[in-house]
Design a protein around this nucleic acid. Structure first.
Lengths: 230, 230
DNA sequence: GTCAGTTTTAAACAGATGTTTGAAATGTCA
DNA sequence: TGACATTTCAAACATCTGTTTAAAACTGAC
């Protein structure tokens, strides 16, 4: 009953389920995925999921685990760049591999799409994901951004700048449906990785270079200074 | 049977349904919302939705319509700013009201949250939304960004820069679950509108000022030049 | 070949959910 | 008031979906 370690033993059905489930979950998300569709794709009986993974959620979190490891080896964050490479270069590499992880729809990349969904409509698995995958990447980006900003920049400012970079990247993952409707015949549908990487890198580097003192409170036009209510 | 124009006649149930539905749809999205919960909140019978709006989707699109008009008057995009105000100022106002529309969780703002959901997990209503709401805003932003970039900047570059700005904004709307988990005790949960507006405005203005020639193709480190497959 | 353990299977179960129905209630207007 | 249309209601209907069950099929060691 302990399946926690995929302990060899040709569990062909189990593997087929993981494979099919990855496809379906990445395509339609946890909620909209049906066990029946997954089992059909896997050529298995409806009861197979419950037998091998306890329940739908067990299958989901296992898929997340497996695909996570897969993605990590497929698109390593540092992309084989030396740790002492110039920060500008490390930023570009970080942005490129992030874009690949999240945007690429090749078969290898169901993880990115699952992550994108998990960010917007979280399941119970998000906590684990944040700890194991998102947090380390955030730290890495903070380190890069920190070394691109003047020494002594407060951590909060570093964080805000990092988030501005991540936001630009994730936008293309989250809002693709809107983009393709905005300008159907434009290049939106057919984004080239290099072009996008270069734009976001340049845009962000320019912003970082020009980082004015620190955005501590300054009154501006028509500002109402009210917190965004929760 | 033609309810297309809300033709007076004190249809109290109809109104209550629209009100309750706006709450529920904004909270949990179209899929996860149940007619039974909406009707209970509205103090109406389960059949009421089908009677007044044909079906669940009819109710949804009507809610979207009504809330759209409401939001437009609540958070006007130009925020009462003169059309000939300096572009820098127009950008700041644009960013602030966008943030308000999308992030604010006050009662008035169910539309922003519905839009955010619609962008990530579209329903049939997205086409209409893009045409009526998103497209005009995109044009407005393009105009602002265009006038901040050197004359003669190709439209594609203007678009990329605009998207970088929108991405920063929407990030906070879409990824809040992740943010609050990343640093639970930090200011993530309690974002102040002014601080955020100022950061994104400065970040973007700096990037726009420094807009290098045009990011037309240049080979960089470890670049693989492969399009992001669809 | 037998037998214990594992895996698969068809069927049914249980609950949720959008929708329909036909009667009852309510409102409108002459 | 009485006749007609509109609106509400409880109940049932039809699907869909995750899960369980108990029997059957399979596997591998002896």
């Amino acid at each position: 009953m302990d399946e926690s370690t995929e302990s060899g033993g040709h569990a062909v059905t189990r593997t087929a389920l993981l494979e099919a489930a990855a496809d379906v979950f990445a395509d339609v998300g946890f909620q909209n995925a049906t066990i029946r569709e997954i089992c059909q794709k896997a050529g298995a009986n409806v009861a197979a999921v419950n037998y091998h993974f306890r329940d739908k959620e067990g299958l989901y979190s296992e898929v997340l685990r497996v695909q996570g490891r897969l993605a990590q080896s497929r698109f390593p964050s540092n992309a084989g760049l030396a740790d002492d490479a110039p920060a500008e270069q490390r930023l570009e590499v970080f942005i490129r591999s992030f874009l690949q992880r999240v945007l690429s729809e090749e078969i290898a990349n169901r993880h990115g799409r699952m992550m994108a969904r998990e960010m917007v409509e979280p399941t119970a698995a998000l906590d684990q994901l944040v700890r194991q995958i998102i947090q380390p990447q955030a730290n890495q980006l903070h380190e890069i951004v920190g070394s691109l900003l003047p020494a002594g920049t407060p951590p909060e400012t570093v964080r805000l700048h990092s988030l501005s970079i991540v936001g630009q990247i994730l936008f293309y993952a989250h809002c693709r449906p809107v983009l393709s409707r905005l300008e159907p015949r434009s290049a939106y549908d057919f984004i080239e990785l290099d072009q996008l990487t270069q734009h976001i890198t340049r845009f962000s580097l320019a912003a970082l270079r020009d980082s004015s003192p620190t955005p501590t409170r300054r009154r501006t036009a028509s500002s109402s200074r009210r917190p965004i209510s929760r």
